[in-house]
Design a protein around this nucleic acid. Structure first.
Length: 280
DNA sequence: CCTTATAACCAGCTCACAAT
DNA sequence: ATTGTGAGCTGGTTATAAGG
């Protein structure tokens, strides 16, 4: 019997942590993934696009994002920043099984959470995060389980904080952000239909030129990038959860051409469509 | 802040066709 | 049935400028 047989054998697949200090950050191509993400900003200020809007996060803020929620850091005015990012899958947190955790802490039903900690909590949170980073680096005995427990503690602390503090509703940066959010929500709802820049511009009474520019400004995505991301995300889900034919799925999420669907799919996910079918 | 416009550039789209 | 490739066209992005 191995003395470490109690340890998760696929640890690297279900958990990762990184601490980065960067002047100019370009996110890798995948803007959604099947893991939870906890993003904590140690220093600086960032603009973050999540799901359908942009939020501004400052040092000391923690964002928790559910799996498969589209997100991206937009170009902020303050390039200097330092952050810690945790990624973990559902099976990493044993308490998630049977939705126990979600039932206890309804806040985690949201697609994402933005938490601005008070100083008292901030110290604890940063301490936990530092220890997670350290454990992941040193890999001492049973570090996997130690990290597991730290992450769980972090989540519990966050949910307690949310129970004690009423989060003020997020403000839009300016009217433009609000209008683009509206358009993004429209896309999220109607991505199955044919969508084009001129059509949306007309529908929302703005010029296509302006929409193109403003969309990029707010979301960090170009219009086409965004529509493709939403469509491919849904396609991936359908591939994993149904037995529908690939060409049928392509049409279902809004592509007229299977060829083109395949190309976009590979560009966004890194794999051809069938890859996700076989995984199951 | 919002809109319109022009123009160069480049990415997306489609199609035909090939490979597996 | 699915994926890949290349050519040619469509159409989005971006910079820039000017005006409401």
């Amino acid at each position: 019997m191995s003395k470490r047989n109690f340890v998760l054998n696929n640890f690297a697949d279900i958990f990762s942590v990184s601490r980065k200090k960067q002047a100019n950050h370009i996110m890798p191509y995948s803007h959604f993934h099947s893991s939870y993400e906890a993003y904590y900003l140690l220093e600086g200020e960032r603009q973050f696009f999540i799901k359908d809007r942009t939020i501004v996060i400052k040092a000391g803020d923690l964002i928790i994002i559910q799996p498969d929620v589209l997100h991206k850091t937009a170009n902020g005015n303050y390039p200097e920043h330092e952050k810690i990012i945790l990624n973990f899958k559902e099976e990493f947190i044993p308490a998630f099984r049977g939705d126990l955790f979600k039932k206890l802490y309804s806040a985690f039903d949201e697609d994402y959470l933005v938490i601005h900690f008070t100083l008292q909590y901030k110290i604890q949170v940063e301490d936990m995060l530092q220890r997670i980073v350290q454990e992941a680096r040193e890999k001492k005995g049973a570090y996997e389980i130690y990290i597991q427990s730290l992450v769980l503690q972090l989540l519990i602390l966050s949910s307690r904080y949310l129970e004690e503090h009423i989060m003020e509703p997020l403000e839009y940066l300016n009217p433009m952000h609000e209008r683009i959010s509206e358009i993004v929500r429209y896309i999220n709802k109607h991505y199955k239909k044919e969508l084009s820049l001129p059509y949306l511009a007309d529908k929302f009474f703005v010029s296509p030129y302006y929409l193109s520019h403003a969309f990029k400004e707010v979301t960090g995505f170009t219009f086409v990038e965004y529509v493709n991301s939403v469509r491919i995300k849904e396609a991936k889900k359908l591939l994993e959860e149904t037995n529908l034919k690939v060409y049928f799925i392509a049409a279902k999420v809004g592509y007229g051409s299977i060829t083109h669907f395949g190309r976009v799919f590979k560009e966004i996910t890194g794999h051809a469509p069938l890859y996700y079918r076989k995984k199951k």
